[in-house]
Design a protein around this nucleic acid. Structure first.
Length: 564
RNA sequence: CGGGGUGUGGCUCAGCCCGGUUAGAGCGCCUGCCUUGGGCGCAGGAGGCCGGAGGUUCGAAUCCUCUCACCCCGACCA
């Protein structure tokens, strides 16, 4: 492509709306433009990079037996009502004129097709995938293409007869994902994750570490344990028992509302303080007992409760139920509540907690003796430095961007959408499903997050919009014009993807800046300076290293470099 | 949805508190000249109902009310 004819609107100044490197660079390099919040147009260069990513994904999906198809973005609303996902908050965008919605993902459509055409165990297994635009009713799009209302995803769906077969398909996808991200040149890691609103029995996320990430992950630098904070555990000890259970004692604690106040006031070690969080779960009161310094993890709570609606209880409601205000609630003599507690409290005694009477706490609580805990769960968020659950080395906590997510869905959609097959005995059985997503824009954005410098993007060959950026330093020089045109033609013949800066009215400095910004792996520079000696220059974008080669050998040298 | 911020030429912004010539700068763009190894120089030029609606006023980019859009933090998040 000749830059003199190309649409590559580069920007010298940083657009005001962009805050993270990938967003700034994708705008500055003329890869895309925003149309409205969370919606972008992909311009020629950006689209080429995305197509490179899509093709890598496609090749690896095909390699595990995936069959590509294309599904409708417009879906009947009723299908989503049937699956139960129409009412998920901030999920589905709908069309005003008809009872249609824009598909945010495609389990429902896949299920619809499968329910009609998968009839026998002989039809299984299947891997179906699509690479296409999806929509989400995103409350707050942000960080460029990392969280948009419209985005391209590869979504794959596996259909199996058994959980064992699902495991095989799941593992195949995990391996394919490793190959995909490795080929893209992205440094990633894999974490155990919560299956969230997708439902299902197991999932892993493919992550890159990034300050801009919206996920938080726990990582063990020693043994490699990695988990999303939604599910991460640690080897932090239980509270345990003190020598002797003393009799209960009520303590006057005027105006003490928080755990910090309480530690200050009683001059006690916070390890004996239990805090009470009061929720309504499916309309009924629920007391959650945690260690005073621990944070409730709502993802874990959701998992523990097995779904349903929960929300913290309001102050008036609380007073009516307990006769006390927040900060004075505790598990002893609390009527009408289901009580659950964090695992760390199992069997604990010698605790201090609220007395269900304003300005009073109770000491010497023995949970086994003085309260009835309905169940213990892992409910706390782990913190940096806690011992790894596998090897006890201190855990590290970092933000991360989710590139891909693989789920064992099981029968969630088979049940609601009635997807069954007949087994060898003629018995109807639910199809066991898996789903496997990759955000295409995120591949490009994450790559850029990991590969840029002050001058611009640094592409590798696999995702670069073009392999080579050919720069004619001065098109008004006859020699340069002839030589650079010759190299360009030869590169085209050699099927090298080349972007040729043949602009006559642009100064050399401008061209070099543009080339660094666009970031193709190799720059071939043709100027009078080199041509005097029959030479052209090849610059490696990543290192800045330059080599001089003979004009006639320019193309073969580039081929050598590209073959590395 | 809560909190904060911003809307002025294609881009980045000044002007707004404290109302008053014809609304400015840099970059980009057009024309000509010049230059040609790191966003080059000189000269000339085009381009804006100051997000929108209403109001206050002799007079509004500027003050008030409403509204829309976008960004950031939070909530939420497959």
């Amino acid at each position: 492509m000749r830059l003199s004819k190309a649409f590559v609107p580069t920007l010298k100044e940083v657009p005001a709306d962009a805050t993270i490197p990938s967003h700034k660079l994708m705008l500055r390099a003329g890869f895309m433009r925003q149309l409205t919040s969370g919606v972008y147009s992909y311009l020629p260069l950006g689209y080429r990079a995305m197509m490179k990513a899509m093709n890598i994904v496609r090749e690896e999906m095909n390699a595990i037996g995936g069959q590509e198809l294309l599904l409708p973005a417009l879906n009947p609303e009723s299908l989503w009502v049937q699956s139960g996902r129409r009412t998920i908050p901030n999920f589905i965008l709908s069309i005003k004129e008809r009872d249609l919605v824009l598909a945010p993902t495609h389990e429902e459509v896949i299920g619809y097709i499968a329910s009609m055409h998968i009839q026998s165990y002989k039809d299984l297994p299947q891997i179906w995938y699509q690479i296409q635009t999806k929509f989400r009713n995103e409350p707050r799009p942000r960080s460029g293409v990392l969280r948009g209302r419209q985005f391209i995803m590869k979504d794959a769906y596996s259909l199996d007869r058994s959980w064992e077969d699902l495991d095989k398909n799941y593992d195949l996808h995990a391996e394919a994902y490793k190959k995909i991200f490795t080929r893209c040149g992205i440094k990633f890691f894999i974490v155990g994750a919560s299956s969230g609103a997708m439902g299902g029995t197991g999932s892993q996320e493919f992550m890159i570490e990034s300050e801009s990430g919206e996920d938080t992950t726990a990582l063990c630098p020693t043994c490699g344990y990695a988990a999303n904070l939604e599910v991460a555990t640690s080897n932090i000890p239980k509270v345990g028992r003190v020598e002797k259970s003393e009799p209960l004692k009520e303590i006057h604690t005027p105006n003490i509302k928080t755990i910090t106040d309480l530690v200050e006031f009683l001059k006690v070690d916070p390890s004996r303080l239990a805090k009470s969080l009061v929720y309504r779960y499916n309309g009924k009161p629920l007391l959650i007992l945690m260690m005073g310094n621990d944070q409730l993890n709502e993802s874990k709570l959701t998992a523990a409760l097995g779904g349903g609606d929960f929300a913290p209880i309001g102050p008036e409601d609380l007073l009516a139920l307990t006769g006390a205000d927040g900060g004075s609630i505790g598990p002893v003599n609390l009527k009408g509540f289901r009580i659950i507690a964090d695992n760390r409290l199992e069997g604990a005694n010698g605790l201090i907690s609220g007395a269900n009477r304003n300005d009073y706490h109770i000491a010497n609580i023995d949970l086994e003796r003085d309260s009835k805990i309905d169940a213990f769960f892992d409910l706390r968020s782990i913190e940096a430095g806690e011992p790894c659950p596998q090897c006890t080395a201190p855990l590290k906590i970092s933000n991360a961007i989710e590139l891909g997510h693989i789920f064992k869905l099981g029968t969630k959609y088979s049940d609601s959408l009635n997807i069954t097959y007949l087994d060898e005995n003629g018995q109807a059985k639910p199809v066991i499903m898996g789903s496997y997503g990759i955000g295409i824009e995120r591949i490009v954005a994450c790559y850029i997050e990991q590969n840029n410098d002050k001058d611009g993007i640094i592409w590798n060959k696999s995702l670069a919009p073009y392999e080579v950026h050919l720069i004619a330093v001065n098109m008004n020089s006859k020699d340069v014009e002839t030589a650079s045109n010759q190299i360009y033609d030869r590169m085209i013949d050699a099927q090298i993807e080349v972007l040729f800066d043949d602009r006559a009215s642009v100064s050399p400095g401008f061209k070099f800046k543009d080339a660094d910004l666009l970031g193709m792996p190799f720059h071939v520079i043709v100027g009078d300076k080199g041509l005097k000696n029959g030479q052209v220059e090849i610059k490696r974008r990543r290192t800045g290293e330059r080599i001089l080669v003979k004009l006639e050998e320019a193309v073969s040298e580039v081929q050598k470099l590209l073959a590395e």
